[in-house]
Amino acid sequence: MQQQPNLIFEQQLSNYFREQLEELANMFEPSPQEDTLWYIGNLLARFGNSSTLYSYQDGRFGVRPLALLYKDALDTPIARQRCLFLRQLGDLALFIGALFPQNYARRGIKKDYFVGMGTAAYDYLSIHARDYQHVFAELATTFHDMLELVARAGNRQQGFDMSDILAVYERWRKSGDPFLASQLAKMGIQLTPDTPSQ
């Protein structure tokens, strides 16, 4: 059975991010678990697809506010759905808190907000989630360090950072433009011949 092109590329993107994270992980004591780095690499690749990051609400696309995701989690009587909302909350807090803090700082939202929201979400998941409880436990207890790790990985001194890569990937995914594929290759993302765009 052949994998879908976007899934194949997302796996390549995930591997790329995981390599970046692994190079920097030894800066932290103790180093994050391999499973946690795997989870974060997948998270970064998943949010590389704008349809995963953005939602449609009130007639426009945007990132759902963390406080509203928290309210959604509190309001649902279904435990599985609560875990899904809190996972989205924790993942978004880590992603935007690490890679786009300046956008929120201009609105008066500080790093402590992301740390508080992400820590609380992952702490709940470390007890109630079906899978990855050990990953969520580590993310909850080291959320501040994980923000730093993702931020450093995203700002490597290579001429490109994660936001550059994600933006080029999103444009390539929509257009299949060979020039964008070559840009991704220069950034360290290798496309295989059987990974066409959508």
Rank of each mutant, 00 (worst) to 15 (best):
P30E: 03
G41R: 08
K186R: 15
Q20C: 02
N6V: 13
R80F: 05
L147M: 03
Q4H: 14
Y70M: 08
Y39K: 04
Q12W: 09
A105C: 02
S126T: 12
F95R: 00
D194V: 02
P32L: 11
W172V: 04
Q102D: 15
L13W: 04
G90N: 03
A25Y: 13
Y132P: 00
S50R: 15
Q158I: 12
F9K: 06
N15H: 11
E34I: 07
R173A: 04
D72S: 06
E19I: 11
G118D: 06
N15L: 10
L37Y: 07
N6E: 12
F85Y: 14
Y16S: 13
G62E: 15
F143R: 02
T52A: 15
R80N: 05
N49L: 08
R156Y: 00
S31R: 15
F95T: 02
L89E: 15
W172C: 09
G90Q: 12
R173T: 01
V135A: 05
I109E: 12
P178F: 02
P65R: 14
R18N: 14
L66F: 08
M1H: 09
I96E: 03
R82A: 06
T52D: 07
T192F: 08
Q2E: 13
D145R: 08
T142I: 00
L21T: 00
F160K: 03
L191W: 07
A93H: 04
Q81P: 00
R107V: 06
G118N: 05
Y104H: 02
Y132N: 15
R87F: 09
M187K: 07
A167I: 03
W172E: 00
G154I: 08
A45V: 06
Y132G: 00
A98E: 01
G97T: 04
T36W: 10
Q20T: 00
R18W: 05
F85L: 10
G159Y: 08
N42W: 06
I40L: 15
